[in-house]
């Protein structure tokens, strides 16, 4: 029964693509929240906390995402409960996002001139008020282009969830290829679908960056 590529398969790919988007959004939102905490810890006044989170970031950034995925997958397995692959994949990607976004955002916070913090503190604002009202709004502007750029990384990274059996776009393509044996066609289409998701984001990120550079040059 070697059916060729049909419309049915295409729907199956689109469904997988939907799950790719869901997983990316989940990882980005939850990982972003964790990344915000990582960023706060990295600029904390407590040296011990800074060092601890620095080590966390170094470990996550120095280990392949695939290995993190395996550790989480089998690590959850020792609790004896069968975890849905979405959970293992989501958790791994969250860890991955938290480290990278935390570092990106720390860089943006530190790019806000120190004189701004100084001026705010001279007006008797607390450290937290200074961060919220003066530093973060300015850091957010700087952070938008690289954050959108990182979203492309996240979308691509979700393809690894296929390895633990989560049926997203890559897994769907594998499944279809196993029955049709048309790898150039199937993986080509899957690649184009990824491209359709990622390329607009890449362009947007670059446009944002250009705009930021222009307004900086004027200032």
């Amino acid at each position: 029964m070697n059916g060729g590529f049909s419309l049915y398969y295409f729907y199956y790919l689109l469904e997988g693509m939907g799950w790719t988007v869901v997983l990316s959004a989940l990882a980005f939102v939850v990982g972003g929240a964790a990344g915000f905490i990582v960023m706060l810890a990295r600029i904390s006044r407590s040296a011990a906390l800074r060092r601890l989170v620095f080590v966390y970031v170094q470990i996550v950034q120095g280990t392949p995402l695939l290995i993190i995925l395996f550790v989480v997958y089998f690590g959850l397995g020792i609790f004896g409960v069968e975890m849905p692959p979405l959970f293992a994949a989501g958790l791994s990607l969250m860890i991955y996002c938290s480290a990278f976004l935390g570092e990106i955002w720390r860089g943006c916070v530190e790019a806000v001139p120190r004189t701004q913090t100084e001026a705010a503190e001279c007006l008797a604002l607390t450290r937290w008020q200074t961060l919220r009202d003066v530093v973060l709004p300015q850091a957010a502007r700087i952070a938008t282009p690289p954050t959108v750029g990182f979203l492309v990384q996240v979308l691509k990274s979700t393809s690894l969830a296929s390895v633990v059996g989560f049926v997203e776009l890559t897994r769907a393509a594998q499944v279809i290829n196993n029955s049709t044996f048309q790898p150039f066609l199937i993986f080509g289409i899957a690649g184009l679908l990824y491209f359709a998701l990622c390329y607009p984001l890449s362009i947007w990120s670059r446009a944002l960056e250009r705009r930021l550079n222009v307004s900086r040059r004027q200032a």
């Binding site: 004189t115 701004q116 100084e118 001026a119 705010a120 503190e121 001279c122 007006l123 008797a124 003066v134 709004p137 300015q138 502007r141 200032a219």
Partner: peptide
């Protein structure tokens, strides 16, 4: 710092 105001050479207004 509520009692002491300071004005800097580089103004340091909040641009946003």
């Amino acid at each position: 710092r509520q009692d002491v105001g300071i004005v800097f050479q580089s103004y340091n207004l909040f641009p946003h």
